[in-house]
Design a protein around this nucleic acid. Structure first.
Length: 551
DNA sequence: GTACTGGGCCAC
DNA sequence: AAACGTGGCCCAGTAC
């Protein structure tokens, strides 16, 4: 492999140096003392093997992730990088291999896939193009911050996978036995689900009713005189019938069994750790996705199985009302900033007399950011718009742009994709003279739908930027609590869920970590928005199991 | 057997 | 309270 020293613009500072693969970790460790920024095609390709040798790097550029951002960002639309035809840099990540280990085999795997130059991948040239694109943007600092945060996220994702989330399979089994009964033979139902099945069949006098098949279940319920068109929870809950209660209980347990039951433990917990693959930038808005084990959907029911190692604790923190606060900062809404000052933002909205209670404030604000038009939350909108005109106008404008087919961007400059070709065709069809009612309705539905997407994009995407900045700052601070130590011997991140982080730490350092978590949150707000009067408070809990943090 | 879709529901 | 944003994953059912 080749190491090349570059300056900030990508100019060569020395001759490219060829390094044998087995010397790569020690070479990186040696050079890391000078705090370089490692520029590589894909963090997932190189970093697992470094961590396997206990080599942690401070900073990097993940060229593939940054490429994706810069190719679609409005701010860099006229750059050479954005105007070039599609290249292998636009291809999906090549190294994200399901079930990969963090052993040296990954190196071999990466090498066997072919040399970079054979694939048309020249990382030095790509880095130069990216730097030029950023330099030519109207606000280079914001984009640079976004790329730094995205790249820091790529390091954290690999580190979290490497460390794993502590998971106590015995405790998980106890939780399952309490709720479901003992683990059944394959093909059998657990005792508790079997009892509920019998109750369901008795209640509708249908000895073959099958609650596992939505289609069959609708037929069974209709035969019993219950007028349903689907079997979703909300529709079922509207009906008064003895079958409803056991059926809802059955569905709840069935979900637990199939999604996070014994099979899940067998598949995903090894050596007391749950190690999902995190996918930074896996969501269009810039949120992370995860691959395997449903890592970003861990139900509260099983979080009691997440237990800290002996002598260690978890510091669990989540950003309070993050999205409405992000909207406040983006829109410069002073009234909403005041509502959220030194208190729960939704309580502040209630105190202003805009709505009656916290639940209404929450549902109203979420509705405003999601594009609700009807129901409880839609009714709240006019009142919110009167009290917080800047905030509401901001999301309405994002929706209007989306409906017109335009691109919107987050605070740091990640841009939304363009609507699909079918979407444009539908709009064109509706413009034709004599377009039928149905065609116009279809176009309008699609238009509104895309407007809801862009409305949410600006808020969700900027919240993701804040969360990445928070986490990147926290990561730097945690290194300083155990300088030179491998991850497993000092506080480290083990979980991230959009606006929530979990740090696994020696118990003696837990309070220090908690303080660093808060400090990093303050940094993140300033970093993104400068000296604005908007607070981003975090709730922090020091606990020995995840379920004890208020979720 | 494998690939795909829709229903449903978990997380934020 | 209700049908409004982003996802992943399991199952049943269907097509090959």
């Amino acid at each position: 492999m080749t190491l090349t020293e570059l300056d900030d613009a990508g100019r060569l500072l020395g001759q490219p140096e060829t390094v044998a693969l087995d010397r790569f970790p020690s070479e990186v460790a040696r050079r890391e003392r000078l705090s370089p920024r490692w520029v590589w095609d894909d963090t997932r390709r190189w970093y697992p093997a470094l961590l396997a040798h206990d080599v942690v790097v401070e900073r990097c550029v993940d060229l593939r992730l940054c490429h994706t951002i810069l190719r679609t960002a409005s701010a860099t639309a006229s750059s050479q990088l954005a105007l070039a035809p599609a290249s292998p840099w636009d291809a999906p990540a090549m190294w994200a291999v399901q079930g990969e280990s963090e052993s040296d085999t990954l190196f071999e795997l990466g090498v066997q896939r072919g040399r970079d130059d054979e694939q048309g991948l020249d990382p030095v040239e790509e880095f130069r193009l990216q730097r030029a694109a950023v330099a030519g943007a109207p606000d280079p600092n914001r984009l640079a911050l976004l790329l730094a945060a995205e790249s820091a996220g790529s390091l954290i994702a690999i580190e979290m996978q490497h460390a794993g989330l502590p998971w106590n399979a015995a405790r998980h089994n106890e939780l399952l036995v309490d709720l479901l009964g003992e683990r059944p033979q394959p093909g059998q139902r657990p005792a508790r689900m079997h009892e509920l099945l019998l109750q369901i069949r008795a209640a509708i006098d249908d000895p073959t009713a099958n609650p596992d098949s939505p289609v069959e279940l609708v037929k069974s319920l209709r035969r019993a005189g219950i007028d349903v068109t689907s079997t979703n929870r909300w529709e079922l809950a509207r009906h008064e019938h003895p079958v409803i209660e056991p059926l809802l209980a059955y569905k709840k347990l069935s979900r637990l069994l199939t999604a996070n039951g014994w099979n899940w433990i067998d598949s995903w917990v090894e050596g007391g750790r749950f190690r999902p693959v995190y996918v930074p930038g896996g969501v269009v808005t810039g949120r992370w996705a995860a691959d395997g084990g449903g890592a970003l959907q861990l139900p509260h029911q099983v979080r009691g199985a997440v237990i800290a190692d002996p002598g260690w604790m978890f510091v669990v923190a989540d950003a309070a009302q993050l999205e409405p606060r992000i909207l406040t900062a983006m829109s410069g809404d002073r009234a909403m900033a005041a509502a959220g000052r030194d208190r729960d933002l939704y309580d502040g909205i209630v105190a202003s007399g805009t709505v009656e209670n916290r639940a209404a404030a929450k549902v109203g604000m979420l509705g405003a950011m999601y594009g609700a038009t009807t129901g409880e939350s839609g009714r709240m909108l006019p009142r919110l718009a009167r009290s917080y005109p800047d905030a509401i106008r901001f999301v309405e404008e994002a929706a209007r742009l989306g409906e017109s087919g335009a691109v919107v961007s987050t605070h740091l400059g990640r841009s939304s994709p363009l609507p699909s070709a079918q979407w444009r065709e539908a709009q064109d069809d509706a413009q034709q003279e004599g377009a039928s009612e149905a065609v116009q309705t279809r176009a309008k539905t699609a238009r509104r739908s895309w407007g809801r997407f862009t409305r949410n994009f600006v808020v969700q995407g900027t919240a993701a930027e804040w969360a990445l900045s928070w986490m990147a700052g926290l990561r730097r601070r945690l290194v300083l609590l155990g300088p030179g130590l491998p991850l497993r011997d000092r506080p480290h991140l083990v979980f991230f869920l959009h606006d929530e982080i979990v740090v696994h730490t020696p118990a003696a350092l837990a309070d220090t970590v908690a303080a660093e978590v808060r400090a990093a949150a303050e940094d993140a707000g300033r970093l993104l928005f400068g000296p604005v009067p908007v607070q981003f408070p975090v709730t922090v809990a020091v606990v020995d199991s995840y379920d004890k943090a208020k979720g």
